[in-house]
Nucleic acid binder design. Sequence first.
DNA 1: AGTGAAACGGAACGGAGACTCCGCTTGGCT
DNA 2: AGCCAAGCGGAGTCTCCGTTCCGTTTCACT
Lengths: 227, 227
Amino acid sequence: MPSSGCSPVAPWRVISLSEVRPLADPEVARPLRKDAARNRKRLLAAAGDVFDAQGLDASVADVARAAGVGMGTLYRRFPTKEALIDALVHEVLEATIEMARESANRADGTGLEDFLRKSSAFQAAHPGCLPKLWNTDHDMVKTARSLIGELLADAQRQHKVRHDLTGTDVTLLMWSVRGIVESTRSVAPTAWQRHLDVLLAGIRPSSEDLAHRPVTRKQLDAILEHG
Amino acid sequence: MPSSGCSPVAPWRVISLSEVRPLADPEVARPLRKDAARNRKRLLAAAGDVFDAQGLDASVADVARAAGVGMGTLYRRFPTKEALIDALVHEVLEATIEMARESANRADGTGLEDFLRKSSAFQAAHPGCLPKLWNTDHDMVKTARSLIGELLADAQRQHKVRHDLTGTDVTLLMWSVRGIVESTRSVAPTAWQRHLDVLLAGIRPSSEDLAHRPVTRKQLDAILEHG
DNA sequence: AGTGAAACGGAACGGAGACTCCGCTTGGCT
DNA sequence: AGCCAAGCGGAGTCTCCGTTCCGTTTCACT
């Protein structure tokens, strides 16, 4: 069947799938059909809306309805509800990592605070998947952590934050903001800003050290496993 | 039917029910039969254990089994799962209020920090009902808030905490600790202490005010309504 | 235009869990 | 001792929700 005399473009060729299937497994994968790709985007957008509004307990049927597709479509694209949530988490983590990279460009010691303010704002704008944000997607979480570690080190070099602060402290700080966002978003959507003010005041240099020992990295890793 | 010639002690008399039925409605109520009172205590204890271990998603059947009673017994004592949780919340809030009163006796400005450390420790020891702690039982929550307000005022008078801190800030602070307890209890049950260290550092007097406006009392009240 | 693999919709399934019902038991009173 | 309201256990009901199945439709390639 040599139609045009050459077949350099086999039907199974792999070309820039990252745009269409950001979560594709490492095996050979076909690009999605146009309608399928469109529905995948709709589903993710709808899931974000629905979970933002109702929390992760919202039913997948609600998501499918909001996306204007049937259950079958949803489940062909995301094999379980968890996979759907993971995809949302993936997006938020990706954005968070990007923000950490941008803040790192400052290198004047203000990157950490800049990052904390921006990433908190982003999370406040995407509250739906917050409960799962730091309990999944091990690799991205670790990437984020190491970037945050760099931001922290820089801030400490420039004497912008207390010397006894650790990376795990900063992680807890972010979880703390997440908790406030979750608790207050319905009636005081910007309350986290005030809370972050207090936290930032708490991490500034001080003559007296924090009274208790920090959490170890290993302990936080354990949360990822059986979160 | 005058059996003993007098009936000063009618079967419906109301005597010191608070011990047996702390949540009894304001209407006329009989004391519980001995076995019923015993089972009520067992149920509350079991519910605490089960929810502490598995979270509020644990099934009521698990609670009944842990208490060694049947479903019927559980539901005669607590008409819904929510009522059972409310009873637990009630206990924790009661203890919290008591702690606030004790701390207030200091009146040397250290009461607030003392209260925050003790109540956090107590909550960390009873994590099961934390998600509902501040969303139910309006009256007790308001009592707690006003006591906290007094602790704060005293601390500010003695220049132990920053002058621009409000009662709502302290409330958010407690919610924040709650979030950290919930997130870390499985692998780092004392992590909240370190986090509280940071928060306490953040509320100490400072030359620069917090950047954002505090949440209003009214906003926090709204959370109680439709939590 | 024709074809078939991929995708679609939504009804049906299965399991989990909150809650109810009812026949049996027991504490507390006379 | 005897009565009976109160209490008890736990099987059964009902609803909700994640997931699957399958007949129909649509894309994409020839």
